[in-house]
Design a protein around this nucleic acid. Structure first.
Length: 235
DNA sequence: GGCCAGGTCAAAG
DNA sequence: CTTTGACATGGC
């Protein structure tokens, strides 16, 4: 149900279409096959570990967890915090994230007996609310878990998405839920499209977002970062 | 050496 | 309701 509070406008050369951007990105870069992980539990662990952290720092942490046989809900929930901290040190915020991983794993066990398939049968919005009630799981992490681990059609918004939209001229309500609705309103209800689109936005963000020394009128990008008037030809 | 990354939470203003 | 600080490592 559309929310009247979500008023989003475009400025610049022409109307901005969510669908056009997806088509251009897909044509330019092709499918990304996200999320890079071995199974849904690993997806969820990765979603927590990558919070405000480069994926290159997350990978060694996942490997270390795997090597220490800590990559199951039960072992993660029961391991000494010190062991977790050691394993995930490379991912940064390691004390905080160790606690988050353990709390989340304990929740998985308590709510669903550690059965992710069972968890995934929960209605989407109810599951989302439950995830958000866990300390350390915010909207992006929750939605990443829903989309990439539980197979729910939920569009993930991240810092790249916000920056890119700002750059192509989007103004107005740019908070998480409004932007999420913008995408969900304009796309077919299709998990694969949601998955690819978010992956492509991250790719675009990495490859283009900070390297264009053009001028910017973007009010969303952080001070000091550069934007350009158009990204792909269309926007 | 400085900047920043696939955020989140709590404490102020 | 909006802004700010803390959390931390590793790559460029």
């Amino acid at each position: 149900m559309p929310d009247k509070r979500c008023r989003i406008r475009t400025r610049g050369p022409g109307p901005f279409l969510v669908v056009d951007l997806f088509n251009e990105l897909m044509a330019a870069f092709g499918p990304q096959a996200w999320w890079p992980a071995d199974g849904p539990f690993e997806v969820m662990v990765g979603a927590i570990l990558t919070q405000n952290t480069a994926w290159t720092n997350v990978e060694p942490a996942i490997v270390a967890l795997k090597k220490a046989a800590l990559l199951t809900p039960r072992s993660l929930a029961n391991a000494p915090l010190a062991d977790l901290e050691t394993a995930i040190r490379s991912s940064g915020y390691y004390r905080q994230k160790a606690g988050r991983l353990r709390d989340f794993s304990a929740w998985l066990l308590q709510e669903w007996g550690g059965d992710i398939d069972l968890m995934s049968q929960e209605p989407t919005l109810r599951l989302r609310t439950k995830l958000l009630n866990i300390k350390g799981i915010g909207p992006e992490t929750a939605d990443s878990i829903l989309l990439y681990a539980a197979g729910k059609p939920v569009f993930v918004i991240d810092a790249y998405t916000i920056r890119i939209l700002g750059r192509v001229g989007l103004t107005g309500h740019t908070d998480y839920e409004c932007l999420q609705r913008l995408f969900e309103r304009n796309l077919p209800l299709d998990i694969e499209i949601y998955r690819e689109y978010h992956a492509l936005l991250v790719l675009l963000g990495k490859d283009f977002c900070r390297r264009r020394p053009e001028k910017s009128n973007c009010s969303i990008c952080p001070v000091g970062s550069r934007c350009e008037a158009s990204l792909l030809a269309a926007v």
